[in-house]
């Protein structure tokens, strides 16, 4: 890509965010409202609030819980989805129940889980996992079910071993759908990371933001929201990089079919 092309691409990607920041900046510039502090004040507090101490004491624990809950959801969702998708009878049996569980808004789980899992890390990881597992699970079921019949026959004819069948046929065949589910699950997981810290917690991003709000540290509260947004963007960029690696074949195939 040429420098001009890069420049254009950057302008497209960064254009709207720049405009929004500018609007925010000027709209709040002379603000004396307690609730809408000037953006300049918010940004001034950003460094002292987050980079001195809270990065290790609040941001890191949040991200670790997110990683643990999300990883568990990925593992459980893919494993269960593969089993359910591989046997039509199991699927018919479990589908209504799965749809029911999926329809429950995940935040409602928090008070329930506090009852029997306490208020520690375990509860928060559990909430993230249980809330974000459904899109992965249901998409995996669909993905496994829709693997090409001819490809299945091919694997049988060449007498693929169980392990090879699982990896080379089932998981890779379902991978486009698994990734779709994982993408939906990631945003749910981030929401639940914050929410699980708002009820009963001693550290974390969500906890900090609520604490700032209660102590009327409004610029700090806003800076926390900005940080959450940045973390969301960063995670989605990481996700896309992984997706480009895992689904290179799929994207190539789709481009070739056009």
């Amino acid at each position: 890509m040429t420098a001009v092309a890069w420049g254009r691409k950057f302008a497209i990607v960064a254009g709207l965010p720049a405009v929004l920041v500018a609007v925010w900046w000027f709209a709040t510039a002379g603000s004396t409202s307690v609730y809408w502090p000037p953006l300049s004040t918010v940004l001034e507090t950003f460094g002292p609030t987050w980079l001195e101490g809270r990065l290790a004491s609040d941001v890191l624990p949040s991200l670790l819980r997110l990683a643990a809950g999300y990883a568990l959801a990925l593992a459980l969702g893919t494993a269960l989805g593969t089993v359910i998708g591989s046997w039509p009878k199991v699927r018919a049996l479990t589908e209504p129940a799965l749809e029911f569980f999926r329809a429950i808004p995940p935040p409602v789980l928090v008070p329930i889980f506090i009852l029997f899992a306490g208020i520690g890390d375990g509860m928060k990881i559990l909430v993230i996992m249980v809330g974000s597992v459904w899109p992965i699970l249901l998409n995996t079921v669909e993905g496994v079910r829709s693997i090409d019949e001819v490809l299945r026959d091919t694997a049988r004819c060449y007498r693929f071993r169980r392990r090879t069948r699982l990896i080379q046929l089932v998981l890779r065949g379902a991978s486009p759908r698994i990734v779709t589910g994982a993408r939906q699950a990631l945003s749910i997981a981030i929401i639940l990371m914050v929410i699980s810290e708002m009820f009963a917690a001693t550290n974390g991003l969500g906890f900090s933001i609520v604490q700032f709000q209660r102590s009327f540290a409004i610029p700090q509260m806003w800076s926390g929201i900005i940080l959450l947004g940045l973390i969301g963007v960063a995670l989605s960029l990481i996700f896309r990089a992984c997706e480009a690696r895992i689904l290179a074949w799929y994207q190539g195939q789709r481009a070739a079919q056009r």
Partner: peptide, 8 residues
Amino acid sequence: GRSLFPWL
């Protein structure tokens, strides 16, 4: 076409 593994 459908009997080849598109990821390989």
